[in-house]
């Protein structure tokens, strides 16, 4: 589905990523973990197209997407959330999620200006789908007309997930989906992620600090430290890998 091949990225002299390679297989959840500053978010930014790697390639559905801008990658079926929520704060929940459908809609400037006819039909169809597949699914029907600023942190994270799902992505990248949540909210979010994977068959890429979550829901884990890939494999393998233990707990002696 997605394979990242020997990606290197540097900011000036700082090497943010040094030769990261892994595959995310179709329909599964792949976790990316590592201490703070390990380059997890940078890796996401490379995959979604905000950063251009100095070396290496990103292959998505068998196609090298390295030259594409983020919006073109979205049209290919990539979707993501951000570490510090990047919802459109001035809009309502519903409008945010409608924006998630952007790539699935077709109206152009002319049909939009006229509205009546094709644009209206398309809008109503999208609205119905959003209501049934996203808003009901994420249990956010009570806040659909609320402005983002009025929502709690946990709900905002959930709306951002909804916006990413509304696109019907092939690949969903979640950047710390449960950061700063209490246990109950974390459990809810884990349930939504698993449901989404099951229901839509989405391939999911997950950056997270919460080890329990990662170990519970991921079928594969990639570990980064100071921009280097120090391990990858199943959660059990990684948990017993000496490099990983050293990176997290500090080397003995």
């Amino acid at each position: 589905m997605l394979s990242v091949k020997d990606v290197q990225l540097s900011f000036g002299g700082l090497k943010a990523l040094q030769g990261v390679s892994f595959d995310a297989s179709e329909g599964e959840i792949t976790g990316i973990i590592g201490p703070n500053g390990a380059g997890k978010t940078s890796l996401f930014n490379v995959i979604s197209g905000f950063y251009k790697p100095s070396h290496g390639s990103v292959i998505f559905k068998g196609e090298d997407v390295g030259h594409l801008k983020p919006d073109a990658r979205a049209h290919k079926g990539m979707s993501r959330t951000f570490q510090n929520i990047a919802l459109f704060r001035g809009m309502t929940v519903l409008d945010n999620i409608k924006l998630g459908c952007h790539t699935n809609l077709k109206a152009n400037v002319w049909s939009s200006l006229l509205y009546f006819g094709s644009a209206q039909k398309e809008e109503l169809k999208a609205r119905k789908e959003i209501e049934e597949e996203v808003i009901d699914f994420l249990e956010i029907d009570h806040i659909r007309k609320a402005p983002i600023t009025a929502l709690s942190y946990g709900l905002q994270k959930r709306v951002e997930l909804g916006r990413a799902l509304a696109m019907r992505p092939k690949l969903l990248m979640l950047d710390e989906p449960v950061a700063g949540m209490n246990r109950e909210e974390t459990a809810d979010m884990a349930r939504f992620i698993l449901d989404a994977q099951e229901r839509f068959g989405t391939t999911i890429l997950l950056v997270e600090h919460d080890m329990h979550l990662v170990m519970d829901i991921c079928s594969k884990v990639v570990v980064l430290n100071f921009g280097q890939q120090i391990a990858d494999g199943s959660p059990q393998e990684v948990a017993h890998n000496q490099n990983v233990i050293d990176a997290y707990l500090g080397q003995a002696g």
Partner: peptide, 11 residues
């Protein structure tokens, strides 16, 4: 509202 967020949605 947020240009990079718009880009990620395909705008």
């Amino acid at each position: 509202e947020k240009d990079y967020s718009a880009e990620i949605l395909g705008v």
